[in-house]
Amino acid sequence: MTPALARMFPSIRSVGDLLRACGPAIVLLLVFATVIWIAPGILKWRAINALLFDAAPLLILVIGSTLPVLLGCIDLSAAAMASFSAVVVALLVPEFGSAAVPLVLVGAAGIGAAQGWLIGRLQIPSFVMTLGTLGLFSGLALYLSNASTVALGPEVAPLDFLGGRTHGVPNAFLAVVAVWIFLSLLLRFTRVGRDIYAFGASELAAYMSGVRRDLIRSCAFAISSVCAALGGMMLLSQTLYSAPTMASNLLLPALVGVVAGGTAISGGVGGLSASLIGGLTAIMVRVGATIAGLPGAAQDVAFGIIILVAVAVTTDRTKIGIVK
């Protein structure tokens, strides 16, 4: 390997490392190839286009959930946040019109930041904190909507945009790509990004090096919440009706997407591109199983087995001392 390449990918020193680094991508390609083999029709632009449209809400959740995981934390509340914000948007639109969307995004950022801050202040594990807020958000969503579906009012420009297409590409997917690029740049070229990785590698050492851990945790959870809210709105733009439980089931697939890409649940290792690949893998498995006509229950079994295989292949065990 040339020195320049070696500098770009310092962790790659052998063929094994290379394989592991490309593992998630290889898994994705294998799954994709299998799907094409089963149903060549999937290669049509229209089909891919439709897939991307469907995939957008899950992908944005996967991307958002990655940041807490990079810290070694976990955000269980993301899916509930997606439902909650979809409900709130639908309720606010009659009052505020299009402004409801940015309003809710800002609110989500605030709630997420508060969550992250409280984890540090109360010193309770993120697993517990977000389990609590998972209940809180879903309860509030039920309460605020009075447990009903709420129809979205007409002419909400940001949601119309998310539901539409530009040059035939779904805008929702373009939004995912935009968020992905923005956050990737943030992680790679800013102090926030460096601090996030430092925090994930060793929280205590980072803290002792002057990293403001409460701030960084707040940032990561705020981003996660905003992405979740955005995911909820993408869903809303597809259905035009909000329901208090509409995104609740995205919790597991989102987590699966994060880890299937090779991001270590213990923090500090991985990134957004990995998550994007992992998220696409999770979706392709579902699509492949559907097209192959597997019964639903068997799909779950297949999904579980593929997660095990993917994670077994992609986990870089040398960087994780003790596996918990």
Binding site: R194, A198, A201, A205, V269, I320
Partner: peptide, 12 residues
């Protein structure tokens, strides 16, 4: 425990 971020490079 407190000074080194294991798994990260010297430069990092």
């Amino acid at each position: 425990a407190e000074a080194m971020m294991k798994g990260m490079s010297v430069c990092q």
